[in-house]
């Protein structure tokens, strides 16, 4: 019954806390241990304190591991980029090139095409930096949609009891490019906040809103990603792109500067620096 709560025994609970914190004298500690054998209520109270410690430890560890999983992905990506090419492969490539200096007609045609296409597009006005839609073009150029909507389960209560099912639905709608329905499912997940990693939910919402060109909603979603989460720096990058898509180059530059300075992901840092340079050039035209 909600109104019929157990009585909180101040002295016993203080004693238990001191016992667990190792603050009791040898004599008092022995007394507590003797009492635990004979007083089941007292033993139940101690069990609750121990369970609190166990649950908080485990949930904190799980949360940290979720954030670290994100960092591991990033660092693995960086290690792939930094990994020097296998020396044996390099030698064999060089050997292969020795006897084959001339280009085939097909290669020459491909080079001409690669050089010609940007020029044609430029004359058609597609890459016109003076155009008012240039920031939006840049946003689309730099935007890379994440492959998956990653949402980790947390230790909290799954009140609806269907988090796993909802996760699959989000991924399936996202793969079908049905961002509207993906958003609806994500909103359902957000209502059951303690059972999922909310930063990942907000991040996924931001991506869907971005793809639907709902810039204001995307901004609000990315801003909700918590700063202690590993996904935060990724969210900042997409936040900058959203501001760009919205045409707000001032705010985009502000966020990009932070990404370019502080982001621990080398690849993203580099992209932010490139984009910043293009935006600075834009100002001077």
């Amino acid at each position: 019954m909600a109104n019929d709560l157990p009585t909180y025994n101040e002295a016993d609970n203080q004693l238990i806390e001191d016992y667990l914190d190792g603050l009791l004298s040898e004599q008092s500690r022995k007394e507590v241990e003797e009492r635990l054998q004979t007083d089941p209520d007292f033993a139940a109270q101690l069990a609750l304190h121990q369970d609190i410690e166990g649950v908080l430890n485990t949930s904190e560890k799980q949360e940290l591991k979720q954030n670290w999983a994100e960092l591991i992905l990033e660092v693995e990506e960086e290690m792939q980029v930094e990994k020097p090419e296998n020396p044996l492969k390099v030698v064999s490539k060089m050997e292969g090139k020795k006897g084959k200096r001339s280009f085939s007609w097909l290669q020459i045609a491909a080079i001409i095409l690669v050089l010609l296409i940007p020029a044609i597009l430029y004359f058609m006005g597609v890459f016109d930096r003076t155009s008012s839609t240039y920031p939006q073009q840049l946003a689309m150029e730099y935007f890379e949609a994440p492959e998956n909507m990653t949402i980790a389960k947390r230790g909290g209560t799954d009140t609806e009891g269907n988090i796993e099912e909802l996760k699959q639905q989000v991924q399936s709608f996202y793969e079908q490019k049905d961002y509207r329905n993906a958003l609806e499912v994500l909103q359902k997940m957000a209502k059951n906040g303690s059972a999922v990693n909310m930063s990942q939910v907000y991040f996924s919402m931001g991506i869907c809103h971005f793809l639907l060109k709902e810039n204001e909603a995307a901004i609000q979603s990315f801003l909700k990603v918590r700063s202690r989460d590993g996904i935060k720096s990724k969210a900042d990058w997409y936040l900058a792109l959203t501001y760009l898509q919205q045409g707000d180059t001032i705010k985009a530059k502000e966020i990009l500067k932070q990404v370019a300075e502080k982001d621990v992901n080398v690849k993203r840092k580099k992209k932010a620096q490139d984009l910043l340079e293009k935006l600075v050039e834009l100002k001077t035209i």
């Binding site: 909600a2 709560l5 609970n13 806390e17």
Partner: peptide
């Protein structure tokens, strides 16, 4: 302060447990 926080946590836990049973 720590003791008060723990007390508050235990009471909230009991309350939620009571609501579940109800």
């Amino acid at each position: 302060a720590k003791h008060q926080c723990k007390k508050s946590l235990i009471r909230k836990y009991w309350k939620l447990e009571g609501e579940k049973i109800e």
